[in-house]
Simulated scan of single mutants.
Amino acid sequence: MDMVIRTPFDKTSTAREVLAGVDLSGKRAVVTGGASGIGVETARALAEAGAEVTLAVRDTGAAATFAGEIRALTMPLDLADQASVRKFAEGWEGPLHILVNNAGVMARPLGRSEEGWELQFATNHYGHFALATGLLPALRAAGGARVVSVSSSGHHFSPVVFDDIHFERREYEAWSAYGQSKTANILFAVEGSRRWADDGIFVNALHPGSIQTNLQRYVDQAELQRLREKTGNPNPEFKTTEQGAATSVLLAASPLLDGVGGKYFENCNEAGPHLPGTRTGVEAYALDPEAAARLWDISVKEVQR
């Protein structure tokens, strides 16, 4: 059995601390949702380390001030719109060394994409899947690239329910929908690394920690507290956005993880198995290679139809 990966960093570490002394000059990075929440600090840390950062956001106007602050580029991207994702990927020129799939939606009311997909799965998984596969030539051209899949402890809420991913026959439940989309983010890392490691592309997933951002915009705080109590985390220790971005940049750029792929990290270290009654660790179903391969095949058929 492989040893669990440990680093000198922990839940208190910040993105700046993780990349201290790391030189990303000449590297190019894309951060989805890079103008709010932990995306801001992920983009800032990568830029401060010397990377050329592109913020892939729905509203480039709203991102302009921050982009100017860190000298980043902006490109429009709506992950729920497959045409927008294709346009972004087709418009990218040159190599891409770092792709941080950071954007997402959480526990929103039932909605559907143009294709009829449940909107959390369409955004959190299919959007990022189509983006990463569309950018594969650019990732290969980098001669060594990393893809970061921002998941969540919310993956504990549900495996991917292959028999009814889009809630066409079962009653919609927002947290289950969110949970399976976050499980899909981890399965993407498992199969992505298996398929792409020979090209020098490594994919990992992570839980950033509990951070108060606009990701919670659809969530009633009383409901959220009931959920915390139910899942054994009644009084979460909130991280700052700088701390929340630390694991993302660790996976994106730290030399400590050269050649590492297909894993799930939390608090800047590889997670162990899920401990019942807690929100820590990773579910076995999220690392299941058979489920990962099945989801990949379904995703290819869906986004390329």
Rank of each mutant, 00 (worst) to 15 (best):
W296V: 00
L295G: 10
L251N: 04
Y172M: 08
S13N: 02
T32P: 00
K263M: 11
A145M: 00
T60F: 09
F9D: 07
A222Y: 14
F157R: 07
A47F: 07
L139H: 06
A29V: 05
G232W: 04
A141E: 07
A20F: 08
V219C: 10
L287R: 10
G281N: 11
T54W: 05
E266R: 13
L250F: 10
V53A: 08
V18W: 08
V203A: 14
W92N: 03
V300H: 07
T12W: 10
A205S: 08
M1Y: 02
F121C: 05
N269S: 09
S176M: 14
P95I: 01
T7V: 06
A72C: 07
A47M: 06
D220R: 11
G144N: 01
S299H: 07
F9H: 04
A286E: 04
S181E: 08
I298R: 15
R71N: 15
T14E: 03
W92P: 07
T241W: 07
Y264T: 01
L250S: 08
F188P: 05
R194L: 03
G259I: 02
G179C: 03
P289R: 14
P208Y: 04
S193F: 09
A253L: 01
T74V: 04
V160D: 10
H156Q: 12
V18R: 07
M75R: 15
E171K: 05
P276R: 06
Q304H: 15
E114V: 13
A293H: 15
T123M: 09
P8V: 10
F9S: 03
Y285K: 01
W296G: 00
A64L: 13
A174R: 14
R146L: 05
F88I: 04
S210P: 15
N214C: 02
V203H: 09
D199C: 02
T247V: 04
P95T: 03
N269C: 12
F238I: 11
L131D: 00
R169Y: 06
